[in-house]
Simulated scan of single mutants.
Amino acid sequence: MPKCLSVALAVAFVLTGLAAPAPAQPGGEPQPAAPAVGTQAPAGPDLRRQVSDVRAVTATIACFYGPHIEQAEARRLCTAQTRGKLLDTAVAQFSHDPEVVRSGLQGQDLRALADSLLRPVVSGEEIRPGRDGVAVRLTLRAETIPGALPERLAALAASPELRTAALAETAVRDRQAAEARMAAVPFAADRAFAAREMADDMRRDAAFAERSLAPGMSIAQVKELMGNPAALKQAVIGPESYLCAGYGKVWAVFRDGQLACLRSRLDYVRRYDADCHCAGNYATILKND
């Protein structure tokens, strides 16, 4: 088979589209929605005031600490770092509040005010220990109690002792967050989670391919199930044209446009001067025709 056919097969794999059937349109006119059953909640100024006073703040951080730091300590450090980011977000939010603007509060006083109103809870947590250290991804969420902001503003303005204590407490939290940032390995957390997620995706793809793909399938059928491959290779061996589509930990090997085998990895064979085929190390072949 001419080599141009191999190239044509590769191009066909990339260009093969899957036409999705258009959803059926229901006949007739749309029916009006049924009226809600039950009593309506009062929409007076008090309720609107309470709803507007509720502020939700969320912060997520991924942290990575070296092997000398225990898992529990890594979690504590990442919590401190996430708490610092949560406070930064809250300060930015409170700074635009009309009551805060009227009070003239700013700088560390504004930071202490926001800090005193936060009661964070962990809403998401993932810890992944590894040979090189511990990766932690943490999400904290906090909501302010309705009416708490004006009360706290008045209390801080009326009591210098309370203001001093709030400033000192916030300074401690800021120092803890700074120490946590210093202890973390820069940029390593995102890489650790991305690598783990990629490995998980590859394992899922391989397991799905083993269950779903069968020799004899066309390129279009495989693409419908697996999507576009991450890698493509091709070879012409005698009269046969091979196309290998890589899906993470599994390779779909097509012979003359039909799935011939599934492999865990490609295997170079000297006499073919190629690794895209269904020969060689049969321990790597998951399915064969």
Rank of each mutant, 00 (worst) to 15 (best):
R181W: 11
V54S: 08
D275P: 04
I237S: 06
L18H: 15
P26W: 01
Y247C: 02
A188T: 07
L5H: 12
V100H: 06
E197W: 08
R152C: 02
L140I: 02
E73S: 11
A235Y: 05
I219C: 06
L138G: 04
R173G: 09
V11I: 09
S159I: 07
A92I: 02
A183I: 00
F254W: 11
A192V: 07
V134K: 03
Q93C: 02
R111P: 02
A188F: 07
Y242P: 05
L86E: 06
I69K: 09
L153Y: 09
S103C: 02
F187A: 14
E73T: 15
A231L: 09
I61W: 03
D115N: 14
D273I: 01
A43F: 04
L266D: 05
F13D: 10
A245C: 08
R211L: 08
S103I: 05
P215I: 13
P35V: 02
R75E: 15
R255M: 11
E125I: 00
S116D: 10
V122P: 00
D88W: 00
F13G: 04
P23Q: 10
I69N: 08
L9N: 07
S212A: 15
Q221G: 13
S52Q: 14
R265E: 14
R163L: 10
A142K: 03
A74T: 05
A231S: 13
R119S: 15
L162I: 03
Q81E: 15
A19K: 13
Q50G: 04
L118R: 06
L47P: 01
L9I: 00
Y242T: 07
G124P: 05
A22E: 11
S95N: 10
Q25T: 13
A20Q: 13
R76W: 06
V7D: 10
Y282K: 15
L113A: 05
